[in-house]
Design a protein around this nucleic acid. Structure first.
Length: 395
RNA sequence: UGGCCCAUGGUGUAAUUGGCAACACGUUGGUUUUUGGUACCGAAGAGUCUAGGUUCGAGCCCUAGUGGGCCAA
């Protein structure tokens, strides 16, 4: 009998995942990871992890499976929280949950599970795993969950073949309503529990307050750039080569205070991200103001009116070699190669038609339609049909 | 110094040319969402610069003051 260790989070999804594994004939062990215990930055819910671990235990009891708890908060702090601060400090916007899966759940946690004699590690993610038999080898695929509304493959976009080899996603074929129904029929305590939101393990936090632990507030100006600014005029349409065009499309606009007018003040440019609307505190405009760029060196925030402001859109992005990742190693493009994919730059975004251009220095992702708020530090993930083929950090 | 114009919620504007102040943005609460962000729904904010006056009744009219802008010299 194969042994599976399932990461019980204290939510419905992982509860049902454990049950499904049981039904499939695995020897199931539940393991709860505690990754955070500083509730000073969370919003409400005095001690969320305590309640979660208790729920996880009750579910394990109900299913009659062994249950243990591991404390990974030290590793979480080193690998996720520190990374977050570093990225924000550099004016980028990190995606801690993608990293959490790569570094914690499918690395630290997975190693612990394997040491405990597990053959597989399972989680309650809405995604599926496919296997292609290639002679003696198996190639693993990361596929979108059957529930198109909950598909969480994006958050697993940084997994490797080795990690995928040992992973199981028991609820990937189910929809959220089906999962809830099963939990209700089994009378699990988590059946009606609200879906988790916000930072995985930390929960909902007020980000500026959280960041202020390390990034000190610093007053700066907010500048509004007119949508008809000359910065957006005279767009070349002819290029000597495709590479020139891609380079042009991914070049960042260099804004200066003199390009617009000062409309307000902020307490730190690194607390803001591209595409952000709330929190600027600047009123009096006909249409809402969105952040189109932040300059953490000069500590200036550039904004523009309306979600259709030209400063918000770009039709291509670049990923450096170091930050390019292929789940399907066998499909990795070689310099000079080009291929059409479907891509998204944030969770739950409808897939967009895009073309990947591989060059010596990295990878260009060119979208058919211009995308709003392509943000440095976030992940772009590319798909073929419902298979996530690769991903990278936007630079 | 003379002349002209303006003064409304946090911000920008509106109010059938006298009948108890509207809209947008912002703020805030919630919903959606295992990142940031977005989107959606709701709420709270002014009694109209100050002091007088006309009127049944004034943000809208009159007088003075205060503050700001413009032209002239």
């Amino acid at each position: 009998m194969k042994r599976v260790i399932v990461g019980l989070s204290g939510g419905v999804d992982s509860s049902v995942a454990a049950y499904v594994l049981q039904q499939q004939g695995y020897e199931v062990i539940g393991l709860f990871m505690k990754n955070w215990h500083d509730d000073s930055v969370t919003i409400s819910d005095e001690c969320p992890w305590l309640e979660d671990s208790n729920d996880a235990m009750l579910v394990a009891e109900k299913l009659g499976i062994p249950f243990q708890t591991v404390d990974l908060s030290e590793q979480y702090k080193e690998r996720i929280v520190d990374y977050m601060f570093k990225e924000y400090e550099n004016g980028r916007t990190p995606n801690p949950d993608v990293l959490c899966n790569r570094e914690i759940k499918f690395d630290v946690f997975m190693k612990i599970a394997l040491e405990l004699g597990a053959d597989y590690v399972a989680t309650g993610h809405y995604c599926r795993k496919g296997i292609i038999n290639e002679g003696e080898n198996e190639i693993y695929q990361l596929l979108a969950g059957a529930d198109g509304n909950k598909d969480q493959s994006y958050f697993l976009c940084q997994l490797s073949q080795n990690q995928l080899a040992k992973a199981l996603f028991p609820i990937g074929e189910l929809t959220k309503p089906e999962v809830r129904k099963i939990a209700t029929e089994l009378d699990l305590v988590t059946a009606d529990k609200k879906d988790s939101q916000g930072l995985c393990f930390i929960g909902k936090v007020r980000l500026p307050e959280f960041l202020q632990q390390q990034l000190k507030p610093k007053e700066g100006v907010i500048v509004e750039i007119d949508r008809n600014s000359e910065l957006y005029q005279n767009i070349p349409t002819e290029f000597d080569s495709k590479l020139d065009e891609l380079e042009y499309l991914t070049t960042k606009k260099i804004y200066a205070v003199s390009h617009g007018k000062i409309v307000g003040k902020h307490q730190g440019a690194h607390y803001f991200t591209k595409g952000q609307r709330k929190g600027l505190g600047v009123g009096g405009t006909i249409e809402p103001l969105f952040v189109i760029d932040t300059d953490v060196n000069e500590n200036v925030i550039y904004t523009g009116q309306s979600h259709a402001h030209p400063g918000l859109f770009k039709s291509a992005l670049f990923v450096t070699n170091e930050e390019e990742h292929w789940i399907r190693e066998d499909m990795e493009l070689q310099p000079g190669q080009t291929m059409d994919f479907l891509a998204r730059i944030r969770y739950r975004q409808p897939l967009q038609k895009a073309t990947l251009h591989k060059v010596e220095s990295g990878l260009y992702v060119e979208f058919e339609a211009p995308q709003s708020a392509i943000t440095e530090g976030q992940f772009v993930a590319w798909y073929l049909e419902d298979e996530l083929v690769g991903s990278g950090v936007i630079s």
